[in-house]
Design a protein around this nucleic acid. Structure first.
Length: 485
RNA sequence: GGCGACGUGGCCAAGUGGUAAGGCAAGGGUCUGCAAAACCCUUAUUCAUGGGUUCGAUUCCCAUCGUCGCCUCCA
């Protein structure tokens, strides 16, 4: 079975073949760290997280590079975003960068997003960017005007191939005044001359200045992944001009394909419009995590295709919360049952293990088909139903439960990150002592129930509920779980 | 105006040239002292609309309407 990926460049699904067998070299455009990250970022980075996890689960070695933009990203008025943040919070620009870079990693850690292998910062790669700009000038793709350097889009005939645009058809400068010094209105800045009071500036062959936004991705991907690598990812909203400029720079300088596969994630919308920093309609990841568990946010993100847009709403998040609970309840039940499981009879074990294998295969073929996480998720839901039935009927024996537990840990946990590890399920910290105390209360309640003192029994249950402990009476006695809120 | 994507049950959302996964919600039932959890049943003859291709289309083609993204910084 082979992996297919929808390649935005060709607009079709292609069989994925890494340049070097068994190795995946991938680059994903990272955030500009001047403010807190929001759920739009979560959608993109959770999506790529699952891609990376899936590759690794399948034994591929992945080098995952994701940049941190900490310079050069200009606002409409020409002010650097970092500088704007610094002014807003009255601190040094690099304090802004540190503050929000750390916040970004905290958020991603909380969401269970595995960190990239390399998180290169633009400001730490100015020499590499200068070098690349020099190469572009030497090859006739760029020109200098009064201390700034521009890329000549007319020098690169394929400019626009990713987004399907043609230079002639675009109304350049429709909303932003075009700088007269450009040869062509669509030309974009590689190096920008810094006014004397500009805080972020470096010496260069063209005088003091700072790099344009697009060049960092070209320079850093080349440094860590080489001139041609396997996968380039990001959000579709950056397809033009950013991704297009990256291609022009890298292919212009290296004269070979930039990347073999372009994977772009769909935009997160809220009330039908894009969630974005500039519109101010965003929900930060930190705020979302106050209300929803990480697994719930992941289920929300993974219940749609990565390349489709998604709509944020409280009802969608609530539904995802319930869904995440459903999977985790079943997974937890399997773990609990496993502790007192019996060998069972062979015929029945064989039947159930076959069934589990089928779910594994459903999951696998879904993921192999352009990372169809929603379909993969449905296999876990269906599997939960069968397992619950088997446990109810008492036919879930040890070998079956061991297999089931493995599927939950590997596919639900390791790959999708929606099944909690065991330690969290019981609360963490002094979990053992806590479990002992809860068990004591359960025993007390049992005595009350035996004495038909239901008022007392219910009181114990509702008191525990206040601490987020939910009791469940089953045929084999009472179990408890920790509420997800 | 140009480019790209998309329109599937009450909501979210997969999918296929041969007759619609899954989650949430709703109703009924089993279990239970009551709950919770779980399980079973029910809820789209229909996939924006109108044409065309086909034995057959939701799936392919064309048109129309609508939504979103990009064309300016945003994942």
């Amino acid at each position: 079975m082979s992996q297919t990926i929808y390649n935005v460049l060709s607009r079709e699904k292609e069989v994925f073949k890494p340049i070097n067998e068994g190795r995946v070299m991938m680059y994903v455009c990272g955030p500009t760290v001047y403010d807190n990250s929001h759920l739009g970022h979560a959608k993109t980075y959770v999506s790529f997280d699952v891609v990376v996890r899936w590759f690794r689960y399948n034994g591929l070695k992945v080098r995952y590079v994701q940049n941190i933009t900490d310079v050069g990203h200009l606002l409409d008025d020409g002010e650097d975003r970092i500088l704007k943040g610094a002014r807003r919070e009255k601190v040094e620009p690099m304090e802004i960068v540190e503050r929000y870079m750390r916040a970004y990693f905290e958020d991603m850690d909380a969401l269970g997003v595995v960190r990239p292998d390399i998180s290169p910062r633009a400001s730490a790669h100015v020499p590499e960017q200068i070098e690349m700009i020099q190469e572009l000038i030497a090859k006739g793709h760029a020109y200098e005007v009064d201390g700034s350097v521009y890329y000549s889009v007319e020098s690169f005939k394929e400019y626009g191939k990713l987004s399907g645009r043609h230079v002639e058809e675009m109304e350049a400068g429709r909303r932003v005044a075009v700088r007269d010094e450009k040869h062509h209105p669509m030309d974009f800045a590689l190096w920008i001359k810094a006014p004397p009071n500009h805080v972020l500036q470096w010496p260069s062959p063209w005088g003091r200045g700072y790099p344009g936004w697009h060049i960092e991705c070209s320079a850093m991907s080349n440094k860590y992944l080489g001139p041609t690598f396997d996968i380039h990812g990001g959000g579709v909203d950056n397809i033009f001009p950013h991704n297009e400029c990256e291609i022009a720079q890298s292919e212009g300088a290296h004269e070979q394909p930039f990347t073999n596969t372009w994977m772009l994630t769909g935009t997160l919308l809220v009330d039908g419009v894009k969630m974005s920093k500039s519109l101010g309609n965003f929900i930060t990841i930190k705020d979302a995590l106050k209300q929803y568990r990480p697994e719930a946010l992941r289920v929300f993100i993974l219940s749609g295709l990565y390349r489709s847009p998604a709509d944020y709403s409280t009802s969608a998040l609530d539904a995802a919360t319930k869904g995440a609970e459903r999977i985790n309840t079943a997974a937890r039940r399997v773990r609990v049952e496993l502790k007192n499981a019996r060998p069972g009879d062979e015929a029945n074990n064989g039947r159930l293990i076959d069934l589990l294998d089928q779910y594994r295969m459903r999951f696998t073929s879904a993921m192999n088909d352009d990372f169809n996480a929603p379909l993969a998720l449905s296999a876990l839901f269906d599997m939960g139903k069968d397992l619950n039935t088997a446990i109810d009927e008492g036919t879930a024996s040890q070998p079956v439960l061991e297999q089931a537990d493995a599927v939950y840990r590997e596919l639900g946990g390791q790959v999708l990150g929606v099944v909690q590890p065991e330690s969290q399920a019981s609360g963490g910290g002094s979990a053992e002592r806590e479990a002992g105390l809860i068990q004591m209360l359960i025993d007390m309640r049992l005595e009350a129930r035996k004495a038909k003192d239901y008022a007392r029994a219910d009181s114990i249950r509702s008191q525990l509920m206040k601490f987020g402990v939910i009791l469940e009476d089953g045929p084999k006695g009472t179990t408890f779980r920790i509420s997800s809120n």
